[in-house]
């Protein structure tokens, strides 16, 4: 089904692979690949696409935090993005890392950002062109804003207040992590959480439920409403915090709730379980 027929609240945040293929050389468009696998971009990427590495480019290399205003400005300049460039994210793992990069860009208020529906998987299934030529673009003079840590990002103190106020949380990890049976997601070993379980009151809605596994595209708004609203009692007026293990899977769910279902008040708690499961004295449910 076409993106415009899926009844999303903000269909303009998605582009199809057809659209991307038709706009590869457009001035004002920058395609950005962001993956888990460090070799994938270099092994072949969409012609003209630049690479943004989630560990090296988006995170501070010393403290546990995202890059700052100055680093963001340098990143944007390096990949040839100006304040008016429309960035189109895509990547592996059903756009998991693409949505993460999208969310980080939004922390800095970059307005023109979209995600290519289906990501790398759909592009490959359709046997579209991949290249190993790494493009270079003229450096830009990007005017970066200060990172906004209040609107779409939540910290542990926010989560504690959120719980006290009885507001809604979404735990997007696997059911085994949610129940406390595992301290990490399947296939991902322990990342140091001393306690298992979930934040009290959180609903368990694994992130990948929002995806059609065959081609990596997002499910329709009706299908998403069935999952988030009918089965789990969320509402677009709710104030919601999503979390996972380190805030990457939950940025995917944040993208879905914010953009596809139109939730105005949704934040991503990137400290997530690697912080909460190690905090002394915070409440945990199993």
């Amino acid at each position: 089904m076409k993106i415009e027929d899926r009844k999303y609240a903000h269909p303009e945040v998605l582009v199809s692979t057809d659209w991307a293929a038709d706009h590869l050389k457009d001035e004002g468009i920058r395609i950005i690949e962001s993956n888990e696998d460090q070799l994938l971009y270099s092994s072949g990427h969409i012609p003209g696409a630049v690479h943004v590495d989630w560990t090296k480019d988006l995170n501070d290399q010393v403290i546990r935090d995202y890059l700052n205003k100055d680093s963001f400005k340098k990143l944007m300049s390096r990949i040839g993005v100006s304040n008016t460039t429309t960035v189109i994210f895509y990547g592996d793992k059903n756009n998991w890392w693409a949505c993460y990069a999208y969310w980080v860009f939004k922390l800095f208020g970059h307005v023109k950002a979209k995600v290519m529906d289906g990501g790398r998987l759909k592009w490959e299934i359709e046997k579209r062109e991949l290249t190993r030529d790494v493009p270079t673009y003229p450096e830009t003079k990007y005017k970066a804003k200060e990172r906004d840590d209040k609107t779409i990002r939540a910290f542990r103190v926010d989560v504690l207040k959120h719980i006290s106020a009885g507001k809604k949380l979404v735990d997007v990890r696997s059911p085994e992590e949610y129940s406390g049976e595992r301290l990490h997601m399947p296939n991902y070993p322990n990342e140091g959480a001393l306690r298992g379980g979930h934040i009290p009151g959180a609903k368990s809605i694994p992130w990948a439920k929002a995806i059609n596994p065959d081609d990596g595209t997002f499910k329709t708004a009706d299908e998403l409403k069935q999952i988030y609203e009918k089965e789990n009692n969320l509402n677009s007026k709710d104030n919601v915090i999503a979390y996972c293990r380190i805030g990457e899977r939950s940025s995917h769910t944040w993208f879905v709730l914010k953009n596809l279902l139109g939730y105005d008040h949704v934040r991503n708690y990137d400290g997530s379980w690697t912080e909460w499961g190690n905090l002394v004295g915070v409440p945990i449910e199993k």
Binding site: E36, D37, Q38, D53, T55, K56, N187, Y188, P189, E191
Partner: peptide
């Protein structure tokens, strides 16, 4: 072989 850039998931596999 793969260095520090390896994610947790890739490392496990």
């Amino acid at each position: 072989i793969f260095g520090q850039g390896l994610s947790m998931g890739k490392n496990m596999g």
